[in-house]
Every structure is written in structure tokens, then in C-alpha cells.
């Protein structure tokens, strides 16, 4: 990766928006990596939670939005529960998802969910899944 850092990056409006809707402050993160270390799904993420926050600190809006990380996060709150700085990466991922979903862009088509799953899975999985993946 190569970044050209400009003042506009550091003052990224996108990052400010995410911070506003999530109530988190990316600057609080000092990159200890505890979140990535404890995250049960970071192995599946393009960038682990602390890297996403690092990219936010550097104002790399596109890299943050292009990563699959936000869709992989399950919101188990393990990151937050052990964060020495009280930052919730889970909240940040939710904010990133919300920005996409509020534009009406779905991450998951309901038709694509196989019928046995629709019938067999607990309702709560569907409700929660729709909340997280569907606008």
C-alpha cells in the first residue's frame, strides 16, 4: 500500500461523520492491537479492527469502505471489553455499515437466503441479519 497523505485526509469529513454517528473518537486509539488480537473474526477481515481505525486516523476513506471488515464484524463486543482506551471498534463497524445501508445499498439480498435456512434458523438470526445487512 502507498498513501499520499494530505491535510484533507487528516481532516476527513467521512471519518468525522462516522465518529459523529458512532460516538467514538478514532484518535483515542493508540494502536495496541488488543481488538485485533481478541477479535474472533479478524482472520476473515481484509483489515483487522485496529487497522481500520488506523486507516480512519489517516483519513483513508476508500480503503476503509472497500474493506469487507464491517460486514464480517458480528458485534460480540470483545474488542470494546478489553480496549484500554475505551474505544469500540464494534460501534465503528456499525457506523460504517449504517452509512452504506442508509443509502439504500443492501449487502444481502433476502432472496439469496436458502429456504431451509429461512425456515430452520431462529427468527432472531434473520431479524438481526436483516438489521445488519439490509437497508
Amino acid at each position: 500500500m502507498k498513501f499520499k497523505l494530505k491535510n484533507e485526509n487528516i481532516a476527513s469529513e467521512f471519518v468525522a461523520h462516522i465518529e459523529k454517528i458512532t460516538g467514538e473518537n478514532a484518535k483515542r486509539c493508540y494502536q495496541c492491537g488488543n481488538c485485533t488480537g481478541g477479535c474472533p473474526v479478524s482472520f476473515k477481515m481484509d483489515h483487522g479492527p485496529c487497522q481500520i481505525i488506523r486507516l480512519m486516523q489517516m483519513g483513508q476513506d476508500e480503503a476503509v469502505q472497500e474493506a469487507n471488515s464491517m460486514w464480517v464484524c458480528v458485534g460480540c463486543m470483545q474488542c470494546y471489553s478489553r480496549c484500554p482506551q475505551g474505544v469500540s471498534a464494534a460501534n465503528i463497524f456499525e457506523g460504517l455499515r449504517q452509512v452504506v445501508l442508509r443509502k439504500g445499498e443492501d449487502h444481502q439480498e433476502i432472496e439469496d437466503i436458502p429456504m431451509p435456512l429461512l425456515k430452520g434458523a431462529p427468527q432472531q438470526a434473520l431479524v438481526c441479519g436483516f438489521r445488519k445487512f439490509v437497508s
Binding site: 492491537g33 488488543n34 483487522g48 485496529c50
Partner: peptide, 12 residues
């Protein structure tokens, strides 16, 4: 011991 190496961006 489950931790992170942030220099490589990986879980260790």
C-alpha cells in the same frame, strides 16, 4: 497466548 502484531496486521 492470543494477541496481535500490528506491524504485520495479524492476529498471533
Amino acid at each position: 497466548v492470543q494477541g496481535a502484531d500490528t506491524l504485520s496486521g495479524s492476529q498471533v
